[in-house]
């Protein structure tokens, strides 16, 4: 009799988890977006610092033509990352016989999008006003906030990843000249390591 009830409780817990959390997020998609971020930021490095040495600590001047290339790189990196993330997650949901677009994933996307879009719009406004140095720290911070917000609806680990990104963003604000390196560290290295952890665990 007791066993039946313990089983019941276990099942309730399992169903509740499955009904609120989107757990088919693929670890490989984290790794792939991390690699994209690294490639994108290395390309950006060569454009920003092609005339200057980063250790000189001079304000970086960027011409309109270079700005266009930077935006192009940013856009391509973003697009490739999203495509990769969807591709690998879709592969995983297929393997688990589930749908990628269900109420759990919709909720996750909504909760990720609110801080992300806010941050994205703010960064674009700052970019057009010429505050290019703010972009790396701010994108890190808003990405971190998005992850913390979305963590309720997917793996718990995402929350610590978000907190790390926020911390990196704040430190990057202090050392604004090295923003790009913090950006590589946050979006590249940390993201890849978390992708590996999630992949190994689930």
């Amino acid at each position: 009799m007791d066993n039946k009830h313990i089983e019941d409780l276990k099942e309730i817990k399992e169903i509740m988890n499955r009904s609120t959390r989107f757990i088919s997020l693929s670890g490989i998609s984290g790794i792939s977006t991390g690699i994209m971020a690294l490639i994108g930021s290395i390309l950006a490095y060569f454009i920003i610092f092609k005339h200057q040495n980063i250790l000189d600590y001079n304000p970086v001047e960027i011409s309109n033509k270079d700005l266009f290339y930077l935006l192009l790189i940013a856009f391509c990196t973003l697009l490739c990352s999203i495509v990769c993330a969807i591709y690998f997650t879709n592969r995983k949901t297929k393997k688990e016989n589930r749908k990628i677009w269900d109420s759990q994933s919709k909720r996750l996307i909504t909760n990720l999008s609110i801080p992300l879009i806010t941050g994205g719009v703010l960064c674009l406004m700052l970019l057009f006003k010429g505050f290019i140095g703010f972009l790396a720290p701010l994108t890190l911070i808003f990405y971190g906030l998005a992850l913390v917000n979305g963590s309720k609806y997917t793996f718990k680990e995402i929350k610590t990843l978000g907190l790390i990104e926020i911390a990196l963003g704040l430190v990057a604000f202090q050392f604004i000249a090295f923003g790009l390196f913090f950006w590589m560290l946050g979006f590249g290295i940390t993201q890849i390591s978390y992708g590996l952890i999630v992949q190994a665990k689930y």
Binding site: I15, M16, S19, R98, D102
Partner: peptide, 18 residues
Amino acid sequence: SVLTINEYLDFNSLKELL
């Protein structure tokens, strides 16, 4: 148990979950 923590769910989501 599903409906106590989700505001609402449609028939198909319930079917898949359970």
